[in-house]
């Protein structure tokens, strides 16, 4: 733990007073929290709490009606997702969003697109610098493939892969961007215990080795409590709690939101306990 505390740096991303609504539906109202460099930050909450909307706000898919987003010390204007990508924000999706017609290798190679410079003419000739660039990035991608232990499925079209591996490839594609901030939307949904453990290991490793800041949404409380440095709890679009895993676990509001509150005879229940 002490190692972690030493490692965590300044604020990387700060959202202040974010409100987002779709017509009459309020997805987020006045949410503020921050993400520090190198930390693993979990966003939890019941279904429909606005967690995915929050990620969508961070990487530019949704534009909040109110509020400020400060990323790397700069207040951010409205931006499109590809601009967020350029600034070093990568993400994975709740329902896998891979490029189904392409192989694992090509999928992860697309993650390097922003770093490739050669123009169409060089590419058409496939000569000199263009080849060199391809090979350089291929090498970087191979490192990721090694890291995620997916060597065997390098040339397999991702549409044919089982669910757990697809999630892993999607993580690989996000990693290929060498992001500073990695947003993971339910990286372990629908996995069995073994796959979950693998995924946890990858998340911890890449946080350790590459110092990537990670914000993750997850429903498995065991995973959240084990992995994350700090936890944000959202409920009905509002911030319910913010703090370390232990603080959040013992927060009465959080317990109420997850387990529900019984109305009327609170006293007698407490007495019984």
């Amino acid at each position: 733990m002490s190692y972690k505390e030493r490692k965590i740096g300044d604020t990387l991303l700060k959202v202040e007073d974010i409100s987002l609504s779709f017509g009459g539906v309020k997805a987020l109202s006045h949410v503020s929290f921050d993400i520090k460099e190198h930390e693993i930050r979990a966003i939890i909450g019941p279904n429909g709490a606005g967690k995915s909307s929050m990620l969508n706000v961070i990487n530019g898919f949704y534009h909040p009606q109110e509020g400020l987003i400060t990323y790397k010390g700069q207040v951010r204007r409205q931006m499109r997702p590809h601009q967020a990508a350029k600034q070093g924000i990568a993400r994975t999706f709740q329902n896998i969003a891979l490029f189904k017609g392409m192989s694992t290798l090509d999928n992860i190679m697309t993650g390097r697109l922003l770093r490739m410079r050669r123009n169409v003419f060089w590419q058409a000739l496939y000569f000199g610098p263009a080849v060199k660039e391809e090979l350089e990035h291929r090498e970087a991608v191979e490192k990721i493939i090694d890291f995620l232990e997916i060597q065997a499925i390098r040339k397999t079209p991702v549409g044919r892969l089982p669910y757990g591996l697809q999630k892993r490839v999607e993580l690989g594609r996000a990693l290929a961007m060498e992001p500073e901030l990695l947003l993971l939307d339910e990286p372990m949904a629908g996995m069995n215990v073994e796959e979950k453990e693998d995924m946890c290991r990858f998340i911890l490793d890449l946080n350790d080795e590459f110092g990537t800041t990670i914000a993750l949404i997850e429903h498995d409380m065991g995973v959240v409590m084990d992995l994350s440095d700090r936890v944000v709890v959202l409920d009905y679009g509002q911030l319910l709690a913010d703090g370390t895993a232990d603080e959040v676990r013992n927060n009465q509001d959080v317990i109420d939101a997850y387990l529900g509150v019984s109305h009327g005879d609170d006293e007698s229940l407490e007495g019984a306990a």
Partner: peptide
């Protein structure tokens, strides 16, 4: 191909 297969994800990775 990224645009063809999933344009939202393509935009996320900077296309």
């Amino acid at each position: 191909m990224a645009i063809r297969d999933m344009d939202i994800a393509a935009e996320i990775i900077g296309i």
